[in-house]
Design a protein around this nucleic acid. Sequence first.
DNA 1: CCACACTCTGACACCGGTGTCATAATGTGG
DNA 2: CCACATTATGACACCGGTGTCAGAGTGTGG
Lengths: 338, 338
Amino acid sequence: MKKVTINSVATYAGVSKKTVSRVLNNEPNVSPATREKVLKVFKELDYTPNPIARGLARNRSFIIGCLYDNPSKSYITRVQSGALEACHKHNYNLLIHPCELRGDALIENIEHLLTTSRLDGMVLTPPFSDSEELIAFLKKKNIHFARVASAIDDAESISVRSNDEQGAYEITEHLINLGHTSIAFIKGHPDHSATEQRFNGYQRALREHNIAFNPQLVAEGNFSYHSGADSAKAILDLNPRPSAVFASNDYMAAAVLKLATQRQLKVPEDISIAGFDNAPIARHIWPGLTTIAQPVEEMTRQAVEQLILQISDEQTPVYQATLEAKLITRESTAKPRC
Amino acid sequence: MKKVTINSVATYAGVSKKTVSRVLNNEPNVSPATREKVLKVFKELDYTPNPIARGLARNRSFIIGCLYDNPSKSYITRVQSGALEACHKHNYNLLIHPCELRGDALIENIEHLLTTSRLDGMVLTPPFSDSEELIAFLKKKNIHFARVASAIDDAESISVRSNDEQGAYEITEHLINLGHTSIAFIKGHPDHSATEQRFNGYQRALREHNIAFNPQLVAEGNFSYHSGADSAKAILDLNPRPSAVFASNDYMAAAVLKLATQRQLKVPEDISIAGFDNAPIARHIWPGLTTIAQPVEEMTRQAVEQLILQISDEQTPVYQATLEAKLITRESTAKPRC
DNA sequence: CCACACTCTGACACCGGTGTCATAATGTGG
DNA sequence: CCACATTATGACACCGGTGTCAGAGTGTGG
């Protein structure tokens, strides 16, 4: 099968390449008759323009890269979904590139990525959105990027986040209002800025409600289900046992719920459990988890949309936004048994 | 900032473009001295080759597209993970493209995708791997593709699947061996060939163990948690209630478990529950779900790897493989209470 | 009828690399 | 020392589009 290029179309239609190109791009100044003729030849020859050639000429790939290193599958899926929505709206496509934050290989890895695929821009999700090193590198290389859920303050680059500290504050307050005073906390992965923010929110809520902060009630997790299971063990073994557990994400909360159930504890009667993120699992288990819903898709959608705007027009003002997180109450939290 | 191209490097190093290109691609017949000199200039100018230009010259984009329309996030993540492994091994990248199987827009959608991004090949996951229409289109367009978990027999295209029928047979047999004779079944989405295959396995197991097939025990699901919840309601309302439920995937099984727990039924004492896929949720809930583990990553990895081989060398023989699924026994299945 | 504006079209350079081929430089055996 | 093979290098066309600009054709107002 012969390849159909713009040249074959031009020859076949008896016009110049440039005219074909004009029709292709819906440019003005083509007579209706010529346009018709060329369009007909498109059909006849089943012509598909070559995006690579176009990319070379325009110095664009129309591809956005999405960087992540995140243990939560549902988070990634939501990120992808928001990113794709914005991409498709502007005829861009999405290339995914999971990689590891740790290790000197990061910059090398990204450099290699840029050598194998020209990306018009990159969306950085946590923990990359907090990597000063990566951000410096991208700036040096003049690569457009947008930060999602980043704690860094950088007025020069696009950033969309949600208020983790406030969310953690609200869910802790929710537990306090139910009557809990002994509330355990499971931290997330130390590389993620959300970890510190959620911890801060927890502490602020205690403070503002005059409950002494007890470091013994804090377990070190890393957002994975597995780490949640370890933390759960430590917490449920405490004596006296806290009446509530607030885990920094839903997977870890689910692990607490599982262990509690295995130990014949009733949730929420014997122990209340709260999570964060509103991952699918939060509503797929019984009792459903009280949690904080963040607009992950929307954050990413906005970030990518702004990124694309910036790519198309360097003059676009740098967009920065903070979206609201929302408390979702389900069955896993209730008044403590007295 | 001046753009650094192969021309600037050539001029600066005092050699020709072609020699620079040779160094870039590690081609032989470059004297060590020249190679050194050019490499030094690479560093000095901080040169990054332009993948688009390279792609145009070689008629390659080094990008594989991954097509899916699947309600299960964990399935998608596993697919992506397997595909990425193969891609990165061969210096390819992965572009994701979720879209809907239904509607005339499918072909148009893919056509548009190919107009915006030149893909060297595509991985089709269910239900696309079973779409005769799409396959015909890709063949017509001379686009390389590989099918994952496809039920279609087509000796001309790469296919990697696992044995769903056998897996369903084994898990049903497992329930029968425990002593269950009244086993409900929840079907998957009708567009997925796995749905029929799993149903067939279920029926064959009943038949081979002389248990009459009872259509009333079959509920229509679509692989989503929500559909599982509806089916669960229908099944648990049956009188007499079956002693076991086999759902076509873990999300639906989790929905059955949730409803059963809400209704104060003990699992597995009052009712056994089995799923399929070994999704994360199967081990994140209590009791853990007995299920079938399919090597999703491995299937996709092999499919993409073969796809890349085929792209690099058209002579590569068409690879077709069927991998084994494995029964995973957890706490959700046990002897029926007599 | 002429001057001028506007529409339509194509020639040609260019984007930044790679492939082909000719040629210069070097090595090797007789 | 010569014939010949081998290595090293560059000139140039080419991949398949887009941008610039010149020029032909058409319309309009004075």
